[in-house]
Amino acid sequence: MAAAAAAGAGPEMVRGQVFDVGPRYTNLSYIGEGAYGMVCSAYDNVNKVRVAIKKISPFEHQTYCQRTLREIKILLRFRHENIIGINDIIRAPTIEQMKDVYIVQDLMETDLYKLLKTQHLSNDHICYFLYQILRGLKYIHSANVLHRDLKPSNLLLNTTCDLKICDFGLARVADPDHDHTGFLTEYVATRWYRAPEIMLNSKGYTKSIDIWSVGCILAEMLSNRPIFPGKHYLDQLNHILGILGSPSQEDLNCIINLKARNYLLSLPHKNKVPWNRLFPNADSKALDLLDKMLTFNPHKRIEVEQALAHPYLEQYYDPSDEPIAEAPFKFDMELDDLPKEKLKELIFEETARFQPGYRS
């Protein structure tokens, strides 16, 4: 834990890192770190609560700039109880001085990944967590956004079992017609939660990839272990087919990539493993919904509104309290091709509203 900075004593240090967030945020305490930044909790002297502050230093890398800009653009436009918001952003007053960006968010005690390492969940908890994931996802999908990296560590939890989806750095506007060349190379989302079509096709992607990830998360809540822990690309596919069985001819016809289709045709026939054999203690309604989410063919996979209306979630289902976005989200430009200098300018502009004396 960093010592509390005395008023006016300059930035606090946390594990050798400068955290320049005073005077409003003090009493910093280390939480963890990701690929390009550290997260601390801090005391907000204005709202009198502890908050989470993520320090991001992305400006050396085009990919990190892209992810940072995506996350900020999306989260500043989203407003939903099951999606983490941005409360404040701290950065230098000029673009030349801006080396880091500090993002202030609600402090959540833990995440689903940490929880599943230590606790076996009751059916009631599984049901409530799944409902909140789908409630947040309904809003995301209504904005025409794909999260693309749903996994237990991106689901934040607090002691009252509130759940918030975080990390929109890989999110995209849904565009089933656009052929994202190089899709697989830039697709760094965790393999275990990846839909089979991501490994088999490169053309376009749809909201059904997020539903697949939610199915993987439900299976993990039922058993405290990942359902498809593939060691590499082909191993991942083999794990999936080992449980779902061989795809039907109709399902194979959806695979545009001939090499991928021929690979699947070359494999020995596998039978589907019954879900109640894998999860003998699970609620039968939970397994019915799991089956509809972990469907090989993305066109037959359940959609988020149908999933919310499934009998497993009937005690929570309330369409009048499951809000959607006001308007579909649009990125003005494809960020993939922009140089990091341009992305830095866009991050600077996007964060201006939090600067003292800002006038829109």
Rank of each mutant, 00 (worst) to 15 (best):
K54I: 12
Y312L: 13
E305H: 01
N276R: 08
Y316I: 01
K330E: 08
L69A: 03
S266C: 15
A219T: 14
R67H: 00
A35L: 06
E345S: 01
E71M: 13
L146V: 02
W275D: 11
F348L: 15
R301G: 06
V18S: 01
L163R: 02
L137K: 03
I84Y: 02
T159L: 13
V39G: 01
F183W: 07
E303N: 02
P247H: 15
L237C: 06
V145G: 07
E33H: 02
P152L: 10
D318S: 03
F354L: 14
P323C: 04
M108C: 04
L267Q: 15
E345A: 01
K300A: 09
M221A: 11
K231T: 05
P23I: 00
I86R: 03
C40A: 00
S202I: 13
E326R: 08
D44G: 07
I227T: 01
Q17M: 06
L107H: 06
Y263I: 07
S57K: 03
H310E: 03
I89L: 05
G10H: 05
D162R: 02
A352I: 04
N45F: 04
C65I: 11
I256P: 04
P311K: 05
P58G: 01
N201E: 12
N82V: 10
I255C: 13
L163V: 03
L156Q: 15
L146S: 08
L278W: 04
M293T: 03
E350S: 01
F331N: 06
S223H: 05
A2V: 00
D106A: 04
R261N: 09
R353D: 07
L346V: 09
V104P: 04
F168W: 09
M221N: 01
Y64Q: 06
F78E: 11
I74M: 04
I256D: 08
C40V: 04
A143D: 14
Y25Q: 10
L75H: 00
F78V: 13
H141C: 10
R67F: 06
N47K: 15
K99P: 08
E60S: 03
I72P: 00
A7T: 10
T181E: 11
Y113P: 09
K344Y: 08
T181A: 12
T185I: 09
K203R: 14
G230H: 00
N82Y: 15
C166A: 03
A143I: 06
F168C: 05
E303S: 06
S57P: 00
L308M: 14
P196R: 13
G215V: 15
S29Y: 02
Q306P: 04
D88Q: 07
L289K: 05
L278G: 05
Y113M: 10
L75I: 01
A143T: 08
Y139N: 15
Q105C: 10
K231W: 00
S202R: 14
I74L: 12
G245L: 11
Y113K: 10
D332T: 05
N253S: 08
L308V: 02
Q17D: 06
P152I: 01
R301L: 10
L338N: 09
S41N: 06
K203Q: 13
N276Q: 09
I324S: 09
N253I: 15
L76T: 00
I227E: 03
T110L: 12
V214E: 15
K54P: 06
A35K: 12
G204L: 13
N201T: 07
Y113H: 09
E322D: 10
H180A: 07
E349N: 01
I198V: 13
N27H: 09
G136D: 01
T295R: 08
I89M: 04
Y139F: 14
I347F: 14
D318W: 01
K55N: 15
D111E: 12
F331Q: 02
I84H: 04
Y128M: 11
L258W: 06
H269N: 14
L313N: 05
L335N: 10
E250R: 03
R225C: 12
A219D: 07
Y131W: 01
R24L: 14
E60P: 00
K164L: 10
N253R: 11
E341G: 11
K285N: 15
V18C: 02
K300H: 10
E220L: 08
M333G: 06
E81R: 10
L134V: 10
N262C: 01
Q306C: 03
S122I: 12
S153W: 07
D167R: 02
R135I: 01
